[in-house]
């Protein structure tokens, strides 16, 4: 059986959560298919590679050197393809983070593979390997058979569990690429303000819509998000009105999110917004209009003025979170 290779995306402080989740999927698939499993790391962090044993890998390919100090799809996909050749891999797993999706695209083209992005479910005993991914921003789910010999799969963050860590170290094999051409590379990264969590990574999102009334109105939304250590989301109406930057937009033309808790403040919940957050585990809606579509879909809906209700929620939940 050909092997399974997992991209271990590194962050400033270790292995990214989405990559650990991909490791969990890799471990389970390797068991089911009785296939060899390895991780590949593209980062100038040799000590981190050995630590991947804890996630269940006995083998790690580590591409290190100047070419890997900053992201480029060309060098990273070349390193993964090289590791895949050595492992004789036919399944490549990545977390569907921003860079994971970028890399999956280039890698799949390079390998002429079957590509499935943002996968939310794997049919473990299927043949050919079958995965489920949201389409039409979650209005439907596509049950997709990957019939190609080589398959590249990116996994939606926050969906699959990370493996339980164990005391184990991995054998690290270096990959050095001499003549990789890099024609597009990250030059610099400007970090967002400290504590500002991205909606795609947050377990709790507090979102504001038209009912927030203006940029000042977002303050109550932000206050609640901060008290819950969550991220701030927004509807298209709020973004298009210029009240908050686009990176906060949740919906079919924004980000698709699956947090544990989504609190919609003054959002009507148009079909295109619901498409972006309908897979949240729990939804709370606060709206003066009891007929708003979101009120019929939320697990808990509060008919009321968000400017009165949300500050009280913040106080009470803030207290509860501290306990």
């Amino acid at each position: 059986m050909a092997g399974i290779l997992v991209w271990a995306e590194a962050s400033n402080d270790g292995i990214r959560k989405a990559a650990r989740e991909a490791a969990g999927v890799g471990v389970k698939l390797a068991e089911k298919l009785n296939a060899p499993l390895a991780a590949v790391m593209c980062a100038d962090k040799p000590d981190l590679a050995a630590k991947l044993g804890r996630l269940g890998f006995s083998k790690v390919y580590a591409a290190a050197g100047e070419s890997f100090s900053r992201y480029s799809s060309e060098a990273f996909s070349a390193a993964i393809a090289e590791a895949g050749d050595r492992l004789k891999a036919d399944i490549y797993l990545l977390g569907a983070t921003a860079l994971g999706r970028d890399l999956a695209a280039r890698l799949a083209a390079r390998l002429d593979a079957g590509l499935a992005t943002d996968v939310t479910e794997i049919q473990w005993d299927s043949s050919p390997l079958t995965v489920v991914r949201p389409v039409y921003s979650g209005k439907l789910l596509a049950v997709t058979e990957l019939t190609a010999e080589r398959k590249v799969i990116s996994l939606r963050p926050n969906v699959f569990p990370a493996p339980a860590e164990q005391e184990r170290s991995a054998e690290v094999e270096a990959i050095s690429l001499e003549d990789v051409r890099i024609r597009a590379q990250v030059q610099k990264a400007i970090q967002a303000a400290q504590g500002a969590l991205d909606v795609t990574e947050a377990e709790i999102i507090v979102s504001g819509g038209r009912g927030v009334g203006g940029p000042e109105g977002f303050k109550v939304v932000e206050d609640l998000a901060r008290a819950l250590r969550g991220a701030v989301g927004a509807s298209r109406a709020a973004v298009d009105s210029g009240w908050i930057p686009y990176k906060h937009q949740v919906g079919q033309t924004g980000k698709v999110v699956s947090p544990v808790l989504y609190i919609a403040c003054g959002i009507s919940g148009a079909i295109q917004h619901f498409a972006g957050m309908g897979s949240s585990k729990f939804i709370i809606a606060i709206n003066t209009d009891k007929e708003a579509p979101i009120m019929g879909k939320a697990d808990f809906s509060i008919v009321g003025d968000l400017f009165k209700v949300v500050p009280i929620l913040k106080e009470e939940l803030g207290k509860a979170m501290k306990q």
Binding site: D112, A113, G114, L115, A116, T130, P134, V135, G138, K139, L140, L141, A142, V143, T144, E145, L146, T147, A148, G278, S279, I283, K290, M295, G296, K297, A298, D299, F300, S301, I302, V303, G304
Partner: peptide
């Protein structure tokens, strides 16, 4: 063919929620 959508299904419906006023 590298991949094939075998079926499209609707996401599971959300359970009926609680409303307070």
């Amino acid at each position: 063919v590298k991949s094939r959508v075998a079926a499209l299904k609707s996401p599971p419906p959300r359970p009926k929620g609680v409303r307070v006023e």
